[in-house]
């Protein structure tokens, strides 16, 4: 149903939220229309191509986000997206994003973190985050394959002394030695790529205790 364009104010804060190349377009309702039954329609544009393209799953929707990961999966291209609001026979003008460049703008999610301990050390094994993929059957691509200079900021916190160490590493295994036995340590890891600043997401905090010092344990016997 054609609508009268421009009678409604535009959605606001139209932006891409991108993590590991999962690219979600999101926006706020038009000013003054929070809580009103507004629907939205989204289109996207591949920079350098000819025309705006529809996203059928995001036509006349009531939610304020739209997953455009599949449409923007070639991360070396650049994109625009726009959304308009509709309410009855009125609709807004299009509200458009700036030029979105996934390769430079996607957030790099945290790695998987595996911890093993012994008396005075904690071994950490990191697995690089995976790029978003269309379907589970698709083979996984590690973000390391996209960003060969991917690094990790590893922080380890001694819950007894309240002291924290941080170390920036590129390899996927590291050992923190000279720790105190029978002490709870908590580890946090963040991935990052040198270059333009990106939002980062630290891993879940994982805590593990170093083992009892066997020498003192024997003496006690």
């Amino acid at each position: 149903v054609p609508c009268v364009s421009g009678d409604l104010s535009k959605p606001t804060n139209v932006t891409f939220i991108s993590i590991n190349m999962k690219n979600i377009l999101q926006w706020n309702p038009p000013e003054g229309l929070q809580g009103v039954e507004v629907s939205y329609t989204v289109q996207y544009f591949i920079y350098g191509q000819k025309k705006w393209l529809n996203k059928s799953e995001c036509r006349n929707i009531s939610r304020t986000y739209c997953d455009l990961s599949a449409e923007t999966s070639d991360y070396e291209h650049q994109y625009y997206a726009k959304v308009k609001a509709m309410w009855g026979t009125n609709c807004s003008k299009w509200a458009e994003t700036g030029r979105f460049y996934p390769f430079l703008e996607t957030q790099i999610g945290p790695p998987e973190v595996a911890l093993t301990t012994d008396e005075k050390s904690i071994s950490i094994v990191l697995t690089a985050p995976k790029k978003w993929k269309k379907s589970p059957e698709e083979s996984s691509i590690s973000m390391q394959q996209i960003y060969s200079n991917l690094k990790y900021n590893v922080s380890i916190y001694n819950t007894r002394s309240n002291r924290t160490w941080s170390q920036c590493v590129t390899n996927h295994t590291l050992v923190f030695s000279w720790l105190e036995p029978a002490t709870l340590y908590c580890v946090l890891v963040e991935s990052f790529v040198p270059g333009p600043p990106r939002l980062t997401q630290p891993s879940e905090r994982q805590c593990v205790s170093t083992l009892e010092d066997q020498t003192t344990a024997l003496e006690v016997k």
């Binding site: 544009f45 920079y47 350098g48 000819k50 025309k51 625009y80 700036g98 030029r99 040198p194 333009p196």
Partner: peptide
């Protein structure tokens, strides 16, 4: 990084003036 930073300072303004999205 300093070059990228300089560009980031003008990216939004410059790209907004580029109205021919269908050519690169």
């Amino acid at each position: 990084h300093r070059v990228e930073e300089s560009f980031r300072g003008i990216k939004t303004a410059i790209q907004a003036k580029d109205t021919f999205q269908n050519v690169t």
